[in-house]
């Protein structure tokens, strides 16, 4: 009887160990980011930095989530070819295309577009970045 208790106890121990080692299979996307259940999908703030990493914004940005536009006025004489955009997104969202460094915003007729993808990767929202230059 004693032997039986010991063997079954060991068996349970091993089983417990195996189950604890089981990999946690939460979904992860191609960038290694967690796919969650959130559906929030919007830009909450926008910043533009110049070559000296100082802001070139002359006003606060106007972010229109319904229209999918971010309108930003920049200082007179700002170098539009070398700007570093920074978008603050809703929780768990990601941006496409990714911003990797200085970006050329000088083609004012064809504004750059960025798509926000929600935490559950199901909702997508495209924003057009409309730059205007401060008048002298």
């Amino acid at each position: 009887m004693k032997k039986f208790v010991i063997i079954s106890g060991l068996f349970l121990l091993v089983a417990g160990m195996i189950s604890s080692c089981k990999k946690n299979d939460l979904p992860v996307d191609e960038d290694g980011l967690l796919i969650t259940t959130r559906t929030d999908c919007y830009v909450s703030n926008f910043e533009l930095l110049g070559a000296d990493f100082q802001t070139v914004r002359s006003k606060a940005p106007v972010i229109d989530t319904a229209a999918g536009t971010i309108t930003q006025e920049v200082f007179y004489g700002a170098d539009l070819k070398n700007l570093w955009p920074q978008l603050t997104l809703a929780q768990d969202c990601k941006l496409e295309p990714k911003i990797t460094g200085r970006t050329d915003f000088s083609d004012l007729a064809n504004p750059r577009q960025y798509t926000v993808v929600s935490g559950n990767r199901q909702v997508r929202k495209t924003y057009k970045i409309i730059i205007t230059v401060q008048q002298k």
Partner: peptide, 10 residues
């Protein structure tokens, strides 16, 4: 200087 833009030292 300009009433609307920041030119200053250039």
């Amino acid at each position: 200087t300009s009433a609307t833009a920041s030119l200053k030292h250039a």
